[in-house]
Write a protein that binds this DNA or RNA. Structure first.
Length: 422
RNA sequence: GGAAAGGUGGCCGAGUUGGUUUAAGGCGAUCGCCUGCUAAGCGAUUGUAGGGAGAAUAUCUUUACCGGGGGUUCGAAUCCCCCCCUUUCCGCCA
């Protein structure tokens, strides 16, 4: 959510931002609604002032057993008027609010303009594997090694739900632990184990609602949503708080299962692990000072990249063009890893700076000093990283000509020293 | 699922027969005074959001906010209705 004052004073800039994001909200009547609201608030405030004064007067008169009937009659009318004005203000505010919540965050000036074809690869790490045999894809490997069983998973929950078995399950668990330990021990994040369900308010705060409701699994009876990412619980931890400047930056990491209905995306990259309804992810969230947020974004990105460097999986970093940015994000880097069997790059992380867009919705502020006004913090998040696709790349890139898979060095201590899956 | 108690400003905590409570009091914090220093003491300040006046992020003024929403009333923290949350006990279950 953007600041009303900011929109009022930078209407063209906001329109420009909406256009760059490829959204189609109209803010043409915003200024008119806003000034109408302010005018009415001023009027009704004066009426309320009068009512407060006279009501006090009535109280005093009644105590002295004086007749106050005339004043009460007069105030009845004033109260009626207030009621009418208030309900009109309320409906104007609702209109304003509906515009406000549909205005996306404005892309940072460093973000290239255009649709996803304008995304720019800014660096590449590692050498893309080449084998002197024909590499298998992850589905074939998973089946032959008996570590992934999609057909049976579908009996339990339907298509798009993975079932890991034996060393597959263990490898998945090793990946999660490896990533968490790295972020906790080396990068200084605090580990959180959050709820995997979130209420409507939290979903709205991070920006998944109202736009993406149909992509969510929802428990209707309780109005709770299965989280599509741990970004939601982590960013909402400090909802409604004013933090002390000495507490910043706050860096949280969490493992969570992530649930996505992926409505409307059937047929697109649906093979195996490429797009599933449930996957595991280690998430990174930072709550920072506004002036540091872009430096923190680079650090966050580096923290996520290190996971892949230690696993020795080749990847590229892409800066997203304005039209490919998510609703709430001002700037975003994607990390794509190479999967030799699929012969393509797979997105495993998005590292975004939301500036104060989420903070304003959620109400997370900080105070620079005792007597200064609270300001909104900046929030960032990134996957560090998602395992389902990581597993794809790992199986495919670490396969041998014998059909076995070598366990990456850094994971072996999490697997009792097992160094090969066969 | 059943029963009970509760939700008040950064924290603690009074106020529930509706009207000097414009939210008492305390703690903490900040500033000043005093003190050789520290402590104590004394004095002052002490929320958030919106609106208006103003060149002003100075200042003045006003409205709203006592878990959320609605209602009654000239007037609601206080009365009524709905919802949410917390705690305890019981039942059920991992």
């Amino acid at each position: 959510m953007l600041d009303v004052k900011f929109i009022r004073e930078n209407l063209e800039l906001v329109k420009e931002g909406i256009r760059k994001k490829g959204e189609n909200v109209s803010i043409d009547n915003f200024i008119e609604l806003d000034s109408k609201r302010r005018k009415m608030v001023t009027e009704v405030d004066q009426l309320k002032y009068k009512r407060n004064l006279v009501s006090e007067e009535i109280g005093k008169m009644m105590k002295e057993k004086k007749e106050a009937k005339g004043l009460i009659e007069e105030m009845k009318k004033v109260s009626e008027e207030i009621k009418t004005c208030d309900s009109e203000i309320q409906s104007i505010e609702k209109e304003i609010y509906n515009i406000l919540i549909n205005i996306p965050n404005i892309p940072h000036p460093s973000v290239p303009e255009g649709d996803e074809s304008k995304n720019i690869e800014i660096r590449r790490w590692g050498k893309l594997q080449e084998f002197d045999f024909t590499p298998k894809d992850h589905l074939q490997l998973g089946k032959e090694l008996d570590i992934i069983d999609f057909p049976r998973a579908s009996k339990i929950a339907g298509g798009g739900f993975p079932l890991y078995k034996g060393l597959g399950a263990r490898l998945e668990r090793a990946l999660i632990n490896f990533m968490l330990d790295l972020h906790i021990n080396k990068h200084g994040y605090t580990e959180i184990f959050p709820p995997f369900l979130a209420n409507r308010d939290s979903m709205f705060g991070t920006g998944q609602l109202p736009k993406l409701e149909e992509d969510m699994y929802i428990c209707e009876e309780d109005d709770l949503f299965l989280i599509p990412t741990a970004e939601i619980p982590l960013t909402n931890i400090h909802k409604g708080e004013i933090l002390d400047i000495s507490e910043l930056p706050k860096c949280y990491t969490a493992y969570s299962a992530c649930f996505r209905r992926e409505a409307g995306s059937y047929g697109k990259e649906t093979r195996g692990f490429l797009r599933v309804h449930q996957f595991n992810k280690v998430e990174l969230v930072k709550i920072v000072l506004p002036e540091n947020s872009y430096a923190e974004l680079e650090k966050l990105l580096a923290d996520a990249e290190e996971v892949l460097q230690l696993l020795e999986i080749p990847y590229r970093v892409v800066i997203l063009a304005s039209g490919d940015l998510s609703f709430a994000s001002a700037k975003c880097y994607d990390i794509d890893i190479w999967a030799v069997g699929e012969k393509k790059f797979l997105e495993v992380s998005s590292c975004s700076n939301f500036e104060d867009f989420q903070a304003r919705r959620i109400g997370i502020k900080f105070r620079r000093a005792k007597d200064t006004k609270p300001e909104f913090v900046h929030t960032l998040n990134g996957s560090g990283v998602a395992t389902a696709r990581l597993m794809v790349s790992l199986l495919e890139n670490y396969q041998t000509d014998e059909g076995t898979v070598i366990v990456p060095e850094v994971l072996r201590k999490y697997m009792d020293g097992i160094n090969i899956i066969k």
